[in-house]
Every structure is written in structure tokens, then in C-alpha cells.
Design a binder for these strands. Sequence first.
DNA 1: CGCAGTCACGGTCTCGGATA
DNA 2: TATCCGAGACCGTGACTGCG
Length: 374
Amino acid sequence: MSRKGENIYKRKDGRWEGRYMKARSENGKIIYGYIYGKRYAHVKERLAKLKVRYSFTHNNINLYKGTVQDWLNHWLNVLMRKKIKLSTYSSYRLRMDKYIIPFLGKKQLILMKSQDIEEFVNYLMNLNLSPSTIHSIVTVLKSAMNKAFMENYILSNPCKNLSLSTKPKNEISALSIKDQEKLEQVALKEQSCSAVILALYTGLRIGEISGLKWSDIDFEKDIIYIRRTLYRIPNTINSRKTEVIMAEPKTKSSKRSIPLAKNLKKYLLDKQQISFSDYVISCKNSYAEPRVISYRFRKSIEQAGIRSIHFHILRHTFATRCVEQGIDIATLSKLLGHASIKLTLDTYTDSLWENRKEAVSVIDSRLGTVSVAS
DNA sequence: CGCAGTCACGGTCTCGGATA
DNA sequence: TATCCGAGACCGTGACTGCG
């Protein structure tokens, strides 16, 4: 069961033995370090750590002998696997397998030049992919090449001078009050609890709404606790399938509580009476995954006869209404579960611009009353 | 029983928001 | 701003239901 290139072998005594390059002798001969274990996976994990550790201590340049494909697989599966979330891993895997490896995979890593990278970027551009997709593919390649350079596996970094045009920042456009009203009228007709109403009056993300249970709502203290989020990622065993994962909210700041106001409380209490599920938004007595909510949402906007928008716009609409009502940014930032006020400021610049215009107008009105001293 | 329509699920790929 | 991460778009499929 030894794997080519890993340097892990099964011994006659039943143990697994892994070898790593500890140093080189004066005549250039490799001095190996050895580790042993009863389980293959255990040895593999420890060996990966030791390989990384000793790569920093080598005095000699340890040029990589494999191809770009070999390095990318090692980088992703060994060096990155435990540092990144499953969803990130699968998105990196996809970009590598679909774009990078078919074009560059067979090249020797140490022979990679900036020209190869340029040709690859041109190739991507000819595929009619959006700038952000090209950006994300090149980012993966760049990260892997940077790591190879850091580890002294290559003499120069072919991505060193690579700069991609920055992604144009999309303007966030919240629903107008008129469109919001139209949508609410459709949503309020729903017999069970509406995800639209929840999003418009709490600013929750779609995954947070999916995972919200009635037990997360404290009707005594009037608080909604955001304790979990649902999302769909590729299956860990069979990457051809996907699965719904229930996890804690994405960051510490996302795990939060939101005050429950009077009207929303009444709405939720009414819906709880007729609910047969543990979940606030349900589908067949279980949770409604984000895709189902999204599907239902599409139907609702068709019914309401408003412009085509994503579910996430409801969150922006909530935030915009807050800003319009003069709610301070620090409070809004907490409500939205943002990690920093800066993020909230960056995201809702447009609404604040109106506030700023109003503020300047107030100051400006003084000017009309000041007379010039003669 | 066969057919058509609706709704939800599943897979794949792309896009872009959020964070450090 | 690079990186990480989640959601959307689109299409095919299957379960379910109503109707003739």
C-alpha cells in the first residue's frame, strides 16, 4: 500500500515507516529522518508536518523534481487541506482540475516561467470567463507557486510580477420601499412562516434562516439567537455528490443575538401555532435548505412583479432601511453580524451618502444667513 | 393507466461577498 | 487586497398529483 512519491512503506513487522529529508551530508547525500506508526494515515500526517519543518532548515536549495500537477496536489492535499474549510478545498480542487492542470499540469515545476503564467491567463481570457472567475483561478495558482518559492522548491517565482486587474466593486442596490411593499404582500400571503419576512426584518443570511429553529427564538426575552447556518458543499467521500452541512455561523461575530420587535414577534407566534416542524422555515417537516428558499424566493418575486434580484438583496434592504431610519453604523454592524464596522461602512456607502448630503445641506443652510462684513 | 404539470432535489459550475 | 467562503444560475431528474 505504499504510495509513489510519499516515501511511506509497510514493514514486515506490520508497522508503517515514513521517511523525510532531514539534511544533506558533505558529499551531498541525503540524510533521512524516520517515523513509524501502526496506521498509515497517522504516519502520513506526521510526515507532512516534518517535511514542511525541515524544508525551512535546509541549507541547500531543494529543487522540486515533480510536475506542476504533482506540486499542486501536494500543496492542496497536504499543506492546505487542514487549514481551509471543506467548501474552499472543493472550490480550489475544481479550479485546479478544470483549468490549471489541463493547461500547465505536465510542465516541470522548476521550469515554470512568467511567460507560462501569461499564456495561461490569456488562455483563461479566451474561455469567456468573467474577470472574477479568472481572478479566483489565478489566485489558486499564485498561492501554490508562492509556497513553492518559499519552500525553495523553485529558484524564482513565475507569479512574482503577475498583477490582475482589481475586481470592479458591485453597487449594492436595496429594494425600493415600493418594491419591498409588493414583495411583503406576496410573502404575507404564505401560510407558513416566510423567509422573505424574516430576511427583511432581521437581516439574516439565507443559510442562517435555513438553520433557524423555533427553539432559537426566546419569546419571553424577545431575542432571536443565531446559532447555526446551513450550506451545501461537495461530499467528502464522493466529490461528485453534494451534501447539506449544518455548521456554526461563519465567524464569531456572526454567532449573535437579535432583538425581536413587537410586530415580527406577533407574526412569528402566529406561524409557530401552525408549524409542525422544529425549523422556522420548513420543507417536508425538516429544514428548507438555502436552495429551496432561493427557489421559493424566485417564485415570490415573479408573483410580486418586481425586478429580478437575489435573496441576499433582502439583507441589504434591511440594512438600508436601518440606515434610512438613522440607526448608527456600530449597531447595524452588530445586527448584521459583521466582524468590523469598516465592512458595514464599505458595504452601505450609498445610503450613507444620502445622509452625508443631508448633513452638508444642514450646514450649508447657515451660509445663506451669514452676511459679508464690510 | 397514461400523460402533463408542478415542485423540489441533485449536480455542476460560476460569481461575488466577507474577512483578515 | 488576497484569500476564503457561500450563494446563485442552470439544467436534468424524480416524486407527486390531478385529470381524462
